[in-house]
Amino acid sequence: MDVLQIQNISHVYFSQKTTTTALLDVSLSAKKGEFISIIGPSGCGKTTLLSIMAGLISPTKGDVFIDGEPVQFGNRKTGYMLQQDYLFPWKTIEENALLGLKLSNKLNEENKMKTIVLLNKMGLTNVEKMYPKQLSGGMRQRVSLVRTLATDPKLLLLDEPFSALDFQTKLKLEELVFNTLKQFQKTAVLVTHDIGEAIAMSDRIYLLSNGPGTIHEIFDVPEKIRNRSPLEARSQPEYNVLFQRIWKELESLANKDEY
């Protein structure tokens, strides 16, 4: 069964003078354990789409189902990771990591232990009592990942979570996220404008065009890349072939925009 199912979503933003169609007739789906990416030029409604999946905004038209149930505002089935870590500076790392559990009243000794173990697995040992300021950007984003995973979400939504990091940290973190998600059999949706990242991490890539945002093309990532970790995937010949294809499509979208 599909963990995520989006059927004919359209979303319009209204202001006093204008209406902006951010998304038009977008449909997509993901099976359990699948990793899909959404790429596209800026302003193609990627973040809007993610917010709709998270139940933060309800679409003007269309339905979203997670595990066969319609998404409602304030549902607790998705985990959302933002561009920056947004750890709360006045909370310790432990308090930050346990935030989601606390808010959904699932905080007990067992879950707490699980979260600490998860922190350790991410290479974060002896930082529980520290404050976010004392950690590096990469470490903080890892804490943010733990915070998201701690509530055991059915679906993980990643909103350019690596874009604010330096290249080396980014590659390491991609590797870590990929392996963690595979290990826990998590379904994930990644929004990015890094083509390489999308290819290296996902099973399927949706290319959105802008004004209004629609699905322009769907790329299936070849098996050979899919089964490898992001770092290894980048050295496969198929990686470059797919990169060129997506690059050309993105260019054509950008050119269409200019004229």
Binding site: Y80, L82, F88
Partner: peptide, 29 residues
């Protein structure tokens, strides 16, 4: 207060009171 902090809380299904208590009030100290 940076709305992204509230967004983080909302993705965990926080109520409006929880958003106030966990993010809005402490950031305004």
């Amino acid at each position: 207060v940076d709305p992204n902090y509230v967004k983080v809380l909302q993705t965990f299904g926080a109520t409006r009171f929880q958003c106030f208590w966990e993010a809005i009030l402490p950031s305004s100290f």
